[in-house]
Design a protein around this nucleic acid. Structure first.
Lengths: 239, 239
DNA sequence: CGGGCTCTTGACCGAATCTTCATCGTGCCC
DNA sequence: GGGCACGATGAAGATTCGGTCAAGAGCCCG
């Protein structure tokens, strides 16, 4: 493992990832001075592993890393963490492929940057409310005919029989059921379930709705639960 | 139909201007993926020159540019082009948004932005306004005699019985019902439902109104719901 | 390292829908 | 009443849209 703990009590935990040890140290020291608890990693795999263990609220991430680069780190991070990501990019850094923002960075700073600027960005970011709530969902269970949805437990039953849903399936169902009868566009669903930074084919929604219908015993033609709103998206049926 | 027209962008030409080469590339890739034809420039003078040559329908323009800034580009652009302008502003430059809009930018996006957001803005500018709103439509249901319209659910009932409308039919009805009794010209209806860039026969409206009347059980001669305003267009009947 | 589960994407098909075109009907003005 | 302009309607072809299937990749677990 390639991470050093450079703790300074009190604040929120921040992971700094940069292969230039000196630079990482400087960044860390400035953040520590501001009262954050800082952990440092120097390569891609180490960053992911460390993030997994220590669950930082924010990750300062150099774009160019040995092992695999910041983009890959960011992508992996996104699969298990809601941490904010602040990308560090060198001025004029050439990248044919997708850079940070496309994989879910929240902000970026161009090198060379002043420490003050960095700190300001970090603070600004932490002040900003995050879309998806970290805590468990305490919304009370909802019932639609024979379908019961319990957001807290993330369980679903039809006619009292439990139905096994995957994470995405459940999330889609949860969004639709949050405003029953209302038509949601695919885009709105994507925004809620996949987050604002996801980018891909809207068609994924269809596939998951398809899976949902199959598991719930629903039928696209005569929908009991999930109504297709042609040209728009989907809606939960109330009955 | 042309193979390039498969995607949503319809092959329209967009100029992306950003001095951060990587970012410009990313933006370009988003747009290309959506089927747009993309040209890139990296500084002010280059942007203006390129715009002159290639006559894009829309320009994605970074506010901060070497040479002269986005505002100046925008100003010059306006002297020979009526392309839409989407400004990119870094966080904290928000004051500048006012300036940007005042010199003729049509919209702006604050960095960092998610790919979906950018594409959505671009499409919103170029395409149909029906695209998608930020959240589900929360306009309360409207009632006209036995006719009830629920914009959120996109459902319509007559005498309590649900009526199946197509997307366009619903949208037309929604527009007319937004200002009951007011006569809308075909042009206004087209503008609202089909978007400003639609080009075709105005009488499409007639066809859809016809379908609406049939489904709603209305009669052109003795209209309960949709009144023909001869020489003008249509209006919603209140009662 | 292998197996299993999930997610994402691409392809394909059938069906719903849109638009155009042509014809017919009707109101309106002189 | 006649002519004309405008609107209504029906049908057809093109196109879009949604559902489903299958393949491939990534991740998690043991």
């Amino acid at each position: 493992m390639n991470a050093d703990m450079v703790s300074a009590g009190g604040g929120q935990r921040i992971l700094v990832v940069d292969d230039e040890v000196a630079l990482a140290g400087v960044v860390a020291s400035y953040l520590i001075r501001e009262g954050f608890e800082v952990i440092v990693a120097h390569d891609g795999p180490g960053a992911v592993a460390t993030a997994r263990e220590s669950d930082p609220v924010l990750v300062v991430l150099d774009l160019m890393l040995p092992g695999f680069d910041g983009i890959e780190v960011c992508r992996q991070l996104r699969t298990f963490s809601d941490a904010y990501v602040l990308m560090l990019t060198a001025k004029g850094e050439e990248l044919d492929k997708v850079i940070g923002l496309s994989v879910g960075a929240d902000d970026y700073v161009v090198k060379p940057f002043g420490p003050r600027e960095l700190v300001a960005r970090v603070k600004a970011m932490l002040r900003r409310p995050r879309a998806d709530p970290a805590g468990p969902d305490d919304t009370p269970p909802r019932r639609f005919g024979s379908l019961e949805i319990d957001p807290a437990a993330r369980t679903v039953t039809v006619d009292g029989r439990p139905v096994e849903l995957t994470r995405t399936e459940f999330d889609v169902l949860a969004v639709l059921s949050s405003r029953p009868r209302s038509a949601f566009t695919r885009s709105q669903i994507l925004e809620q379930v996949w987050g604002p930074n996801w980018f891909g084919d809207e068609h994924v929604v269809d596939v998951h709705v398809g899976a949902l219908r199959r598991k719930l015993g629903d039928d696209a033609a005569a929908s009991k639960f999930l109504r297709t709103v042609r040209g728009v998206g989907y809606a939960m049926v109330t009955r």
